[in-house]
Design a protein around this nucleic acid. Structure first.
Lengths: 337, 337
DNA sequence: TTGTACGCGTTATCAT
DNA sequence: ATGATAACGCGTACAA
């Protein structure tokens, strides 16, 4: 009682399954009249090829597996949107699977893809490199996105977190801010690590006299709120906060204002990601064009699958600073102390 | 040179493929010693079953197809997140496909799923019912989400847009607002239609003396801005705006304030969806728990697939009003005029 | 307990 | 131009 198969079509058109396959796939070695009879039979039966059987026979699924961590809302959807756009443009479907924080589960998720997809897109800023390498089926093409390092012969895309952090430090120093505090992301996350390191390096180079102050966080709003309370309570000078992502910046912003601090007059606040909220709150941030990165990852993977160049280099994507009101330049020089 | 197959494992363990299959699938009719030899061989070869072949043999793919329209960011990701949570909990993968505005493309997207998934989740508030029905493979189980009507024997979930709109009208009237303008969503979209109709009906019942005023929009921020300009320019009284979604409400809010209107003192503003932005802008809105709806849709589909009751009823999800500052009650009675 | 052989729905090879 | 048939990798009757 299932769907009609190629055999049903063959029977109805009174030809062999081979001819049906040829006709339906547009091969030219089939007589016009025969072709028409086949097409008619197919239409009458509402025949649709069985993609599973097809991919078994062709050894190509025309699907690519996408394994993402638990991303903050807008980031996730934009990433998938970018991927889907490019994938559907090139005739591929996306098989989705969330990889939670656990390395074990990540391996399971990756194995589940075997035999259903032609290649993998893996974003894993929080999985140790060796674990990732081990979990990745050796023969399955894969493109890494923001992995915590490079794996030989695996093409990869990376966001240039360091450059973003550096740009922000330059921007803040240029605005007359001197005592910049960084709110870091989760420890195991490469993006967080690189942003923190970029902050450290930029400060060491551009303002070597300033002490480097970093408060730990976890990318959630609450961490930003906690950091704000710590900053307000502390006697250490602080005239600017650079959070490792927008959500923490936003939490910080709110709490600072509630505590009576004026932003940016007393303390400037900046984030990273440029989530839609950032624009509405006039939050200075680093724009990460995640949809573009996703689309590009798909494109590289498909190029690989179709033999159009197996470029195995790591591609660095430069983020861009978006200056808004929360980091307006200081007007006087009363920054010290 | 591909991955190891079940045959390779059989050869290495010196047994038949049947025994390998049995051992790997945990059947009990295999001797302990044999099983261990098989397990060892599988591990040594890094064998992972080929899901494609498996599903062809079992006639079950353990995957479900998700066909969504081009959703606004957060809405999309939350929906997919909810679906993925439930799907992975029950051992299914999600095959994603965006269905753009075109009915033709929708049909193509649906057909591409044949032979790869066990069932379909379709959200199509913008596709005419007949087109949707025609495009849906007759024998493939499917759960409809916010479809523009009901299809016999197809289980469905719906957001109760009318109830949401009515709750908002009650809230606004209760706050002393009298001249409420509705900014509608795109014409072909059921959610938009139902919200507008709910607005009309509620007003007709609760404030029959008030004229019903509706400005057309398209769910985008710009439409809200345009509506705001129209409201400001018009001589018709207006002390409250109820937009069919948050993004339009937000656009409206900004433009009204830029035009010197105080919100909510001069004009109250409300939206629909409760996107994260809404909370930060203190926008009154209707909370739509889309992740929950997505998870529930998956759950119903899998129940169906596994024979645990083929409940074909339409399930109505009640949204909830979230009152925030943009619709604070009027303090005096100077509303008329 | 174990093995042989067939079927799942296609495509591709090799005849004719 | 067309047809018979062997793959593709797996599960599972059925036989032993």
């Amino acid at each position: 009682m299932g769907e009609a198969t190629i055999r049903d079509v063959a029977r109805r058109a009174e030809v062999s399954v081979a001819s049906v396959s040829r006709a339906l796939n547009g091969l030219n070695n089939v007589r016009g009249e025969t072709r028409e009879r086949i097409m008619a039979a197919a239409k009458e039966l509402g025949y649709v090829p069985h993609a599973g059987a097809r991919s078994l026979s062709l050894a190509r699924a025309h699907a690519i597996g996408v394994v993402l961590p638990d991303l903050h809302g807008e980031f996730f959807s934009e990433c998938v949107r970018g991927m889907d756009r490019e994938a559907s443009r090139r005739g591929y479907l996306l098989l989705l699977s969330n990889m939670h924080d656990d390395s074990e589960q990540a391996a399971v998720a990756l194995r589940a893809m075997r035999g259903r997809v032609d290649g993998l897109l893996v974003m894993a800023p929080h999985i140790p490199l060796e674990a990732l390498e081990r979990a990745l089926p050796a023969t399955l093409p894969a493109v890494l996105i923001n992995a915590p390092g490079e794996i030989a012969s695996r093409p990869a895309l990376r966001l240039d977190n360091r450059a973003g952090a550096r740009a922000m430090v330059e921007h803040l120093l240029g605005g007359g801010h001197r005592h910049i505090v960084h709110i870091a992301g989760p420890e195991g996350n490469v993006d967080a690590q690189e942003r923190a390191q970029g902050f450290r390096d930029a400060l060491a180079e551009l303002a070597p006299d300033m002490p480097v102050r970093i408060i730990s966080g976890d990318f959630n709003e609450e961490a930003g709120e906690a950091a704000a309370r710590e900053i307000v309570a502390s006697s250490a000078p602080c005239d600017a906060v650079f959070a490792a992502n927008d959500m923490m910046a936003i939490g910080c912003l709110h709490t600072l204002r509630q505590a009576g601090k004026r932003v940016p007059e007393d303390i400037a606040v900046a984030g990273f990601d440029d989530v839609p909220l950032a624009r509405y709150l006039a939050l200075t941030t680093i724009e990460v064009r995640i949809a573009e990165i996703g689309a590009r990852a798909v494109s590289r993977l498909i190029d690989m699958l179709e033999g159009k160049g197996a470029d195995t280099r790591t591609e660095l994507h430069e983020p861009q600073l978006i200056a808004r009101a929360t980091t307006a330049a200081r007007v006087n020089g009363a920054a010290h102390g």
